[in-house]
Computed example of a mutant assay.
Amino acid sequence: MFDVYITKAAKYLPNEAVSNDEMENYLGLINDTASKARRIILRNNKITSRYYAVDKEGKSTHSNAELTRNAVVQLFDEKFSDQDLEVLSCGTSSPDVFAPSHAAMVHGLLKNKSVELNSSTGICCSGMNALKYGFLSVRSGNSKNAICTGSEKVSTWLSAQKYNHEIINLKNLEAQPIIAFKKDFLRWMLSDGAGAFLLENKPSGDISLKIEWMESYSYAFELETCMYAGGDKLENGEIKPWSDYKPDEWLNESVFAVKQDVKLLDEFILPKGVESMSEAMAKHNVTAEEVDYFLPHVSSNFFVEGLKNGLNEKGIVITDEKWFMNLLRVGNVGSASIYIALEELMYSGKLKKGDRILLSVPESGRFSFAYAYLTVC
């Protein structure tokens, strides 16, 4: 078994930062009416700026694969070129196409050489799952290096035109032409971007982060779906997939829209997060005192105090100065968020050798959680 180090990190955030007041200039107005939920949601999540890979006409400036490629190529230099790469492991919840895989599409843009590919799907944990694949590949000796990524391109999923047919259908049925909160909610939560890590079996450069361990937990065996796209939720909690709908229903019911069961989110995301993090730390005999920087991916600042309180009740008291977050400035970039946050910390000048970093990533899809523990070398 070999030690594994994150030797370089990179991020790519498209275009200029978009303020709260500018969001509907990019995403558009549904039914030519400003969202009544937008200000309430933004007041709770406290995000002040984010990035979109679209212009004000709603036209794409980058694909998801291009965002990812633009992060990956920053990892190449005279010491490690694109010809040295052995494994490319990519995670996303918003691939450009169902098939081929996201990793294959990114590799197609790199045009370097034949490499081993892995694509991780899901929601926020897909980026951590991609990282774990690279970690295990290098750790086992299967490869000497791997590049792992997390990326999202959700702006086009959230554009007003994606909901227009549903609004027209509601008007035809003489119903109130307002989309459900479970759909409108996420329009003001998500943003675009990509992050990438280079993993190697020895440290390199001025700073490297040794991956001590990674752990993942799923509660899908006991909890129903909370966040989903490409289907809709039935009264019994089951998901009816897009392939079981008629083509006109795809548009009339916005079947491909990203949706969130907010009640389930509020009930389970924090308790299951505290439970899984407590188990992961206990398994590896890590205490709160042995964490110098805590990087929690949270979808909204609304959950921060609740997470602190829940951890405190479990005896995991991580003091405020150890928390490192950039959510308010870069937005919720899903699977890329943890990459973008760690890249910022890695090159902040704050880290010193021996510092220990705990990464925490929840996923509300069907409640999954992923953790990583790093040591600065």
Score class of each variant (00 low, 15 high):
31 N>S: 08
333 V>T: 13
198 L>Q: 01
301 N>H: 07
59 K>W: 04
20 N>V: 15
362 P>Y: 08
72 V>D: 03
173 L>T: 08
369 F>H: 13
88 L>V: 14
158 L>I: 05
222 E>R: 09
98 F>T: 15
195 G>I: 04
40 I>K: 12
370 A>H: 09
232 D>F: 11
220 A>T: 10
201 N>K: 07
347 Y>D: 01
189 M>C: 12
283 K>Y: 05
261 D>N: 12
131 L>N: 08
254 S>D: 03
24 E>I: 04
172 N>G: 15
255 V>Y: 01
361 V>G: 00
238 E>M: 07
214 M>E: 08
224 E>P: 10
159 S>Q: 15
42 L>N: 05
288 A>G: 00
257 A>S: 13
266 D>V: 12
17 A>K: 13
361 V>Y: 03
121 T>I: 13
224 E>T: 15
47 I>K: 03
88 L>Y: 11
181 F>G: 01
108 G>C: 00
292 D>H: 07
290 E>T: 02
36 K>A: 12
31 N>L: 04
70 N>F: 02
375 T>Y: 03
226 C>D: 05
125 C>N: 08
109 L>P: 10
350 K>Y: 08
2 F>V: 14
218 S>I: 05
184 D>P: 07
182 K>S: 13
191 S>V: 08
10 A>P: 00
93 S>T: 14
204 S>D: 15
219 Y>F: 14
179 I>N: 10
166 E>Q: 06
157 W>K: 07
84 D>L: 01
321 E>W: 06
327 L>W: 02
